[in-house]
């Protein structure tokens, strides 16, 4: 049952992400990406990680993709106005993406040998457990990530300021 659901979801997410890449219209592309995020959130729910699923939707579908849509709509990008890149750039982009894929494949290759945990605790992904783990076992990395976010926020505000007097 779980396997069937997983396979359906996997096909759906791969299908939407392919559509995202191959669509010419940037707005359609963003909308397909949102659908991909929803299918990934469904994967999280399948793994009992409700909190991650909802946060994934709030952050990616609810905030980041809205800003993407904003920019695309304001610039009014579409098929006709899309600038054509030269062959050299396309070549460079293909190589860069290929290298990224290679890195991901290398990372995944190590995890294939991992055994599935038998009788995993079904409550492992709930807010309470996640909070306990984050604030007890991983406090230092968590705080460092927080400082990183704060620095990024300050940087964004500085970039956004029009007339900066230092």
């Amino acid at each position: 049952m779980t396997l069937a659901i997983f396979l359906t979801l996997a096909v759906v997410s791969v299908f939407f992400s392919l559509l995202m890449v191959f669509t010419k219209n940037p707005i359609h592309s963003v909308l397909y990406l949102i659908l991909t995020f929803f299918s990934i959130a469904a994967h999280y729910i399948l793994l009992n990680a409700q909190f991650l699923a909802v946060v994934h939707i709030i952050v990616y579908a609810g905030a980041i993709m809205v800003l993407f849509l904003f920019v695309l709509m304001l610039l009014n990008l579409n098929k006709d106005t899309e600038p054509q890149k030269s062959v050299g750039w396309k070549f460079a982009a293909a190589i860069a993406a290929g290298l990224l894929l290679l890195t991901f494949l290398g990372a995944l290759k190590g995890s294939i040998q991992l055994q599935q945990v038998a009788n995993a605790d079904p409550a492992v992904g709930l807010v309470k457990n996640l909070g306990t783990v984050l604030f007890r076992d991983f406090v230092v990395p968590f705080e460092i990530a927080g400082i990183l976010f704060l620095a990024a926020m300050v940087g964004a505000v500085l970039v956004g300021k029009r007339d900066l007097k230092i």
Binding site: L31, F51, V55, I57, I58, A61, G62, A63
Partner: peptide, 22 residues
């Protein structure tokens, strides 16, 4: 009665923008 009810509501509130934008 999911134990993240408030986040569920926030999620759908944040998705409400799409109908308007599209």
């Amino acid at each position: 009665n999911i134990n993240i009810g408030i986040l569920y509501i926030m999620g759908f509130v944040s998705l409400g923008v799409y109908g308007i934008m599209i």
